[in-house]
Design a binder for these strands. Structure first.
Lengths: 148, 148
DNA sequence: ACTGCAAATGAGAATGAAAATCAATTCCAT
DNA sequence: ATGGAATTGATTTTCATTCTCATTTGCAGT
């Protein structure tokens, strides 16, 4: 999966910009959490990221990780999804894509489909809606789970 | 919005069939909850349906309503969605459709788009997945909220 | 109708993710 | 250096949902 907006520097710059533009402060914790987040390859929960952050920064609290991930979403550094009910999964913001989720093993495949995107705009236009975002989740069985 | 599979009799029959086919029991509570559910026009949470059920059947517990709605999903009488995180919304099973949700007022428009459906199958096939279901949620502002 | 027993119920406790509190700390413009 | 607003972390709270378990109930087989 190609990283569309993915360097360390870019993410940190995006954070810095968002913070200053909103009168918020650059803190040690936010930087540390961003570093840990950037090391995650796929999707992660706040809780799991907290575990991750803990390794290098045992003093950082869980609440801060929860808060900070929401901040990252606002700063367009991360995206939030809820594939299964009750848990929020975060991923790097890296250009739009949708998800195909295996109900057997939980594997997640990302994809893009231009025709679908066009149709979505079409639908929204027809209803007079101004579209902000969308979530398209396909659920099924991956090749391995299907044959097992 | 047309009811595709929507009569009272059909729903009750579907329930009866599901129950007997799975060695489960037909109970006063399940019938009562189904009756209340069928009176709901759009989407409802377990909690709100519990309030509804309570009116005529104060003896029915919340846990039973939660359990029963999950049963309805299995029996293909209801569908579950989680538009906002942390709450499950149920709607009548009435043929597939997707949702356009207004972030301003919470209005929900249902739609169908054949081209999108075809593309979904295409995507799944390309990845070797056997598709079970999907969820497509468009978020934006409805005409009223957009201009306000 | 009677019995046995698994399924179902209801009240309340437990869970778990996320949000809220709040006193103490830390950024940062001046 | 200073003041005040933003931030933090420990903790509590919230709130939807699930679990527990003693009791009840539907129902298949007598």
């Amino acid at each position: 999966m190609a990283r569309v907006a993915g360097t360390w520097e870019e993410a940190h710059e995006r954070l810095a910009e968002y913070l200053s533009r909103h009168g918020l402060k650059k803190t040690r914790q936010r930087d540390a959490i961003l570093d840990s987040f950037l090391e995650v390859p796929g999707h992660i929960t706040s809780e799991d990221l907290y575990e991750q952050v803990r390794i290098d920064h045992p003093e950082i609290g869980a609440a801060t990780v929860y808060r900070t991930l929401k901040l990252f979403v606002d700063a367009k550094i991360a995206n939030a999804h809820h594939f299964r009910d009750g848990v929020t999964l975060y991923e790097h913001e890296g250009g739009h894509h949708d998800h195909l989720i295996c109900l057997g093993c939980g594997a997640i495949v990302e994809f893009r489909n231009q025709i679908i995107e066009e149709q979505l705009d079409e639908v929204a236009k027809r209803e007079g809606y101004r579209l902000t975002q969308h979530r398209l989740h396909l659920y099924g069985l991956c090749p391995d789970c299907r044959d097992a």
